[in-house]
């Protein structure tokens, strides 16, 4: 008699219960982006699920960072950019006329490749954005600063020098400070553009562990050039090539049995 509960048949790399039950949060339909006359994104349709980690991979210039930046309208800052198609977050069209871009960027935080702390104290790096958004009381600020630093797995390393300059931190610590600064204002989504590419393996491991912790509370979309990083941290992976979304599936599927030949050539390092 089969007395123990068996897991699902593992040969076909099934989704976990968590991946299965996650609801869609970001949806694009026929999204196209032009830099002047050149088309950088060619009709992207994607549905990104809530509270999971989704990785974007692909060779340089394939459009993955450009696409990521569509989700908080960072491309608006570039004059020659024109975007068509739909991009919805939680059902809301983020390119609609009445959208407050500042509010949108509060909902959709971003961490960049190179850590960019303000030339202020560790404490002020986090408190600054909170004050900007209206929090004034010191007790409340103290609380959120501590919570954010703990959330970014940095508290124990910096709690004795909160008022020293953030620029005195190591590269890995600065990047985690930037993550703390992002989560302080409680966004729904965190976009990460190669957040560990400038870090050594130990600092990278810390950031990766942090991402796996953060997905309990946030939806994370990450651009990475490091394929093993995608396999270690992401639930879903999207492979981009020259402005096209070539394949989008469970990370285990993409890295063990991709459907598309170009995806397979890329993940196995045979890209021509």
């Amino acid at each position: 008699m089969a007395a123990i509960t068996l897991k699902t048949n593992s040969t076909s790399t099934p989704a976990t219960a968590e991946q299965e039950s996650a609801v869609p949060l970001i949806e694009t339909k026929g999204l196209e982006l032009f830099y002047g006359t050149s088309k950088a994104l060619k009709g992207i349709d994607i549905t990104i699920k809530e509270k999971l980690v989704t990785a974007f991979i692909g060779p340089s210039g394939c459009g993955k960072s450009t696409f990521l930046r569509c989700f908080n309208r960072m491309n608006d800052l570039i004059d020659s950019v024109r975007i068509t198609g739909e991009c919805r977050i939680g059902g809301e069209d983020i390119y609609a006329k009445d959208i407050d871009v500042i509010e949108l960027r509060k909902r959709v935080g971003m961490v960049f490749q190179k850590s960019n702390p303000f030339p202020k104290s560790i404490y002020e790096n986090i408190a600054y954005a909170l004050r900007l958004h209206g929090t004034k009381e010191k007790a409340k600020l103290d609380e959120v600063v501590e919570k954010s630093l703990r959330g970014a797995a940095l508290w124990d390393e910096v709690k004795d020098r909160l008022h020293s300059s953030a620029l005195g931190l190591s590269g890995g610590q600065q990047q985690r400070l930037c993550i703390a600064r992002t989560i302080a204002i409680r966004p729904e989504i965190i976009l990460m553009d190669e957040p560990a590419s400038a870090l050594d393996p130990i600092a990278t491991a810390k950031v990766e562990e942090l991402i796996l912790e953060l997905k309990k509370d946030f939806t994370i979309v990450i651009v990475t050039h490091n394929m093993q990083q995608a396999t270690r941290i992401s639930d879903y992976t999207a492979f981009f090539y020259i402005g096209e979304l070539v394949e989008y599936d469970l990370t285990t599927k993409i890295f063990t049995n991709p459907a598309n030949k170009r995806t397979e050539d890329y993940v196995t390092g045979r890209f021509g």
Binding site: L6, K7, S10, R232
Partner: peptide, 21 residues
């Protein structure tokens, strides 16, 4: 059949872990 299923489970877990280099 329980052993057979466990063997498949272990292979599935191992393949996923191996993909993480």
């Amino acid at each position: 059949s329980i052993l057979d299923e466990l063997e498949k489970d272990i292979d599935g877990m191992a393949i996923t872990l191996l993909s993480k280099a």
